[in-house]
Structures are given as C-alpha cells and as structure tokens.
Amino acid sequence: MPDLAIETHGLTKRFRSQLAVDGIDLAVPHGSVFGFLGPNGSGKTTTIRMLLGLVAANAGDARVLGADMPRHVDVVLPRVGALVEGPAFSPYLSGEANLRRFDAADRHAPRGTRNARVAEALDRVGLSHAARKKVHAYSLGMKQRLGIANALLMRRELLVLDEPTNGLDPQGTREVRALIRSFADDGTTVFVSSHLLAEVEQVCTHVGVMSAGRLVAQGTLDEFRDEGEARVLVRTPDAALAREVLARVLEARAGADHPVSRPSAADAAGDDDPDGSVTARLGATPPEVVVAALVEAGVRVRGFETVHADLEQRFVELTGEGFDVVQ
C-alpha cells in the first residue's frame, strides 16, 4: 500500500442539480508538495472542504493521514493546518486574539505554550508588528498572512493551503513560496491549490489538475511535463507547403490537430519572401523524420525547434478552459 497523506476514491459532491466534484481519485504522497490546479469553479475548494470534513460527500471516500474522513475528524484535524477559501477572522478582535481563539478551539493545543506559539506563528509570517491591531484594520495581504499563521500554530503533518498567495504582493508571494519550501524540508506534506501556474511550477513536486469537477491528471511534476505534448515549430517562407507536409507526416497520429501558421512580423511588413512559422503537435513521430520530410518536399527550413509544453500549455490542453470560469 502506497504511503499517502491524502487518498480519495470516487469522491463526489452534488449541489442540487450541479455536480461540483465528480468521482475524483486523489493520491497525495507523504512529504510531497502537491499542486492542486484548476480554473475557478472547477471543484478545488469543494474538494478541500470535503477533505477537512466541512462538507459531506455524496459518494466515495476520503482518507487523510491514514484515517477516514469525516469519521475521524477529531483525530485527523489537529495534525492538519489549513487555509480554506481565504482567511476569515472576527474583525473586532486583534490578530493575536483571533489566533488564540482558534488555538483554544483545538483540544490538543496545550494552553501553557499558547501565547508563545501564537507569537512564533505571527513572527514566521512577519506580522509581529500588527499583532495587537484589530483585524478590520488589516489589509488583504495581512489577513492572508494571518491565515497562514493560523495554519502554523501547531506542528502539522499536513498543510492544506487554498490559494495561499491571493492578495499578496510579489514580495509576499516570494515569502510564501519560501515558507512552503521550508515546510517541505521539515517533512510536512503540503497540499496547495492555486490557479497561478508559475507558483506551482516553482515549488511543487506533484501536480493534480481539476476541470469541471473531474481530476483530469495527476502525477509528479516531471511526469506531468513529459506527458505534455511536444510541438514542432518550423520557421520557413513556405508556410503553406510546410503545413501540408506536417499534416501528411503527422497524420498517422490520432488526434493531431491541424498545424497552425503564424505570420511573422516580416509578413505583416509586406516582405516579398517572408518568414512564417508553422507549429504542430509532434506526437510519437521522431523530429528528424519531420525535418527529412520537409526538406524532401522542398520547404526552405530556416528554423526548426521542438518545444516541450510548459505547465501552462499543458494546463490549457487538459482543461481547455484557460482561466475562464467553467459554467
């Protein structure tokens, strides 16, 4: 049995007629930094709410840190720190008082060290100076930091961070990234949901992608990149001919799309012999075969490149949605 921090089977949640989460099988290994990606409205937060026992699943099961949720909520949650759908605090209490309140709600958090742990968590997110300020005077970024501090009040085995860099400036974003790395170095499993791909690419070891309630892919970041379809990019003045050749050579592969040609700047300037570029999905065809076919057909190849999909392209391939909200 693989050592998983989070494991779900067929986890499903339906709100009235809408299927928010549709039978997902998550597998988050211990010690990983798992990037949970998906466009807005794809079911990420609902999944997180089910994992934390806030929302009951309609079907399927979830195990967190080896115990069934939500049956073992009282045992599992003290070992989990979480930021869910943005930070939330009592606005009329200070940052410090809010943290003490949440800490007092956890039976396992020792009273004796409460003040020290609150101070340490505030220090870790750089909020010590604002500890006594009422939260209604906090900026969005400060609330976000306070939310992260709340997740750090106790030593956790699992951190679930839903959009942790929301509302943070670039400096704050960098700090959060550094924090996530430091948790991972301590052996804490980090489950971080985001729609910011660059973020995820920089800190994650594993990735899962949600689209319209389904988990459309998951694996290590490297597997994920490799699965991304390589493309060929041909720079040539004979764009039309290159398109034909590419279509013919790559035809054998099922699902290959039609090559797209992109007129270059020279084309727009009205050059007689303009350089165009044509791209197509490479599939399983070796690139040298493509080059040979192009040359044989008399295409003047001025540039040839195979491009590996980056995470963003892969994301768009999988979700087909870009960053739009799924209806």
């Binding site: 709410r49 934390l52 026992g53 806030l54 909520v73 009282d74 949650l77 003290p78 989990v80 979480a82 869910v84 759908e85 943005g86 939330a88 605090f89 009592s90 606005p91 949440f102 800490d103 709600a105 956890d106 039976r107 709340n150």
Partner: peptide, 18 residues
C-alpha cells in the same frame, strides 16, 4: 457570516462541543 465557523471547525472545535 464572518467565515470563522470553518476555521473553528477545522481547529477542530467539534460540532457538538461548539
């Protein structure tokens, strides 16, 4: 309405206890 209910529950306060 403040959103603090979810944080109390994942602390975890326990629903009956809360």
């Amino acid at each position: 309405s403040h959103g603090t209910l979810r944080y109390l529950l994942i602390a975890p306060a326990g629903r009956i206890r809360l």
